[in-house]
Amino acid sequence: MDLPMPTEPAPLSTLPRSVPAPRRAAPARRVRTPGWPRLRAVLLGTLSIAIFLALWQAASATHLDFFLSFDNIPAPSDVAVRAMAIVLSPAFVGDVITSCERVYFGFAIAALLAVPTGLVIGRYKVAHELIFPLCELLRPVPAIAWVPISIMLWPTDWESIVFITFLGAFFPILLNTLYGVQRIDPVLVLAARSLGASEGAIFREVYLPGALPAIFAGLAVGMGVGWVSVIAAEMISGQSGIGYFTWQAYSLIQYSDIVLGMVAIGLLGLVSSAIIRGIGRAAMPWLPAL
């Protein structure tokens, strides 16, 4: 047998090099904004926060009363003093833990149900026709509106609040997953099939990873709505939790505690979405670093 063409593949050096070609794949480089612009961003950000706190402090200290009434609004310094006193107390920590449990539990169930449901109704027209109208019927009802029904439905307070959180998180995750499946390039499915992929393998290897960016967008939104729902539910019907703490502070005229509760809720939401973003980045290494 004679092979008339040169049998060596074209040497790399003759091949197009539109990509800077490290011998080993370099980890994605995060481009650091150099020196001054970055420092400026930090300074300006700090400045606006400082001005906000200073104005608030001044308004409270002078009991400003001009249309808005700062008469009963605690100053940031009062809140800080109060925070030192109770943040590590068992009662406060217990409320934080209770709320976290409710959110994460409801959120986890929502994610475990919504992601597979979204994948299936995105993939199968029949499933879409069966399930989607029901979703569209239930979706416009805000989770909070379920509070009375939920109280009647579930044996205890804890379960009914978890249910509210679940409802809040479920629909954003479902809709984003569905959207993620629908915008997968159909050619990728053809490619997988022509490479011998079974239906199950296509789910695992194409639909799931292909929808992952949209799924994580949905999880982030779902987590946010989950926190909104849990706080509102605790304020309305809870006997514990950080939402209950905040509302209770109002009833007990502990005004510093109201702000303390708000700050805690904000921080908990922030940490929660940071966790989801972190997991998302780890799960999707192919996406360019933000």
Binding site: A25, D185, V187, L188, L190, A191, A192, S194, E205, V206, P209, G210, L212, M284, W286
Partner: peptide
């Protein structure tokens, strides 16, 4: 039968 598409159609999430 191996198929090669014009739009490359590589799986973006795979190396």
């Amino acid at each position: 039968r191996g198929m090669v598409f014009q739009q490359y159609s590589l799986f973006p999430w795979k190396t």
